[in-house]
Simulated scan of single mutants.
Amino acid sequence: MHPASNIDYSKHNARRDRLTKIIMEEHTKARKKSGAKQHFVDALLTLKDQYDLSEDTIIGLLWDMITAGMDTTVITTEWAMAELVRNPRVQGKVQEEMDRVIGERIITEADFANLPYLQCVVKESLRLHPPTPLMLPHKATANVKIGGYDIPKGSNVHVNVWAIARDPQIWKDPMEYRPERFAEENIDIKGSDFRVLPFGAGRRVCPGAQLGINLVASMLGHLLHHFKWTLPEGVKPEDVDMSENPGMVTFMHTPLQAIATPRLPSQLYKHVPVDM
């Protein structure tokens, strides 16, 4: 590695630590003033002594939460939009629900509970297109036998959640993008139902699962409520490249191109409240 790269990497780490310490200090001051809140940062800080968490450990966990939720959320949203422009029926059904529930105003997080079909769209998108198709690597801490196979202690284990979610023995018409399947059956996607595991499961389940779901719901909600999305002229649904780039996370091989047509009153496109 070039020496300059080491210098840049050190500077990046120092900036990361400064930013994270500022977040920690803000929460420490707020906690002394009004008590602990029920969220990730305060949980780490209040359990620091009980679990012997060092400052470096807390910084690492906070930074994992920030970085792991960036590309994965963007990836899921782009895949979902690709499916929605290829499936006008589904897009129209989401927009009808939002027109009925929200009307001519800006969507907020409080609306999510009243938008069940939007939630189904998020779940179906995560089923067909999990952003980490092999999850993150796990290491066996003991010799175990799983499904008749011996897994030696120390083995790296990858779980192919992409294949599980497309298994015709588990899912009816698994390649069909049909959000209604999550309305017909109450299927948990946060680790308790092993048919769909975009966030993993068990003790190593993604701590930001609900945050990720809400972020995707928010982005899709804004995009679909404000605009009708269509493919460029001459492009058919089957022409959209739905292949993935290989890697730990799966971006679309060919970035999606779609045309947005406004569908709400013009004043709603001029300003978004800061506190939303």
Rank of each mutant, 00 (worst) to 15 (best):
E104P: 02
G92Y: 08
Y117D: 07
I189Y: 06
P174M: 09
W79S: 01
G154L: 05
G147A: 09
E97F: 04
V159E: 09
A183H: 12
P133F: 12
I164M: 07
K172T: 13
P198G: 10
P198E: 11
T132V: 14
N160Q: 07
E109G: 08
M81R: 00
P137L: 06
Q169M: 13
L197E: 06
G147K: 15
D173H: 09
V144T: 13
C206V: 08
K190W: 06
A82V: 03
I107Y: 00
M98F: 00
C120T: 14
L128R: 12
V144D: 13
I189N: 05
N114Y: 08
N87H: 15
G92C: 11
I170V: 15
V90A: 09
S125E: 01
E97W: 00
I170Q: 12
V157H: 02
V85C: 02
S125L: 06
L136A: 10
I107D: 00
D167Y: 04
L128Y: 06
R203P: 04
P116M: 06
G208E: 07
G148Q: 11
Q119S: 13
R105D: 02
G154W: 10
S155D: 04
N186A: 15
V101P: 03
M81W: 01
L115N: 03
Y149R: 11
A183R: 11
Y149H: 15
G147C: 15
Q119N: 13
S125H: 06
R204D: 10
E83Y: 01
S125P: 02
K145T: 14
A82T: 08
A183Y: 07
N143F: 02
V216N: 03
P137K: 13
Y149A: 14
G208Q: 05
R181A: 13
I102Y: 00
T141P: 00
I189K: 07
E180N: 09
F112G: 01
Y149S: 07
I213F: 02
P168Y: 02
K172Q: 15
V144K: 07
V121Q: 04
R204A: 01
G92H: 10
V205L: 13
W171T: 11
D99A: 04
S125R: 02
P168D: 03
S192Q: 14
D111S: 02
G191V: 11
F182R: 04
R181P: 12
K172H: 12
A163R: 09
C120D: 10
P131A: 12
I151P: 02
A80N: 06
E180K: 09
K93Y: 03
R89D: 15
K190P: 00
Q169K: 15
V94M: 00
G148P: 14
V94H: 02
E96G: 03
G202N: 08
A140N: 04
R100S: 03
L126D: 05
G212A: 09
E83R: 02
F182Y: 11
D150Q: 08
E83A: 02
V196Y: 02
I107K: 00
H158A: 14
R127W: 05
F112A: 00
K139N: 12
M175L: 14
E104C: 15
N186V: 12
H129Y: 05
P152H: 09
P207G: 13
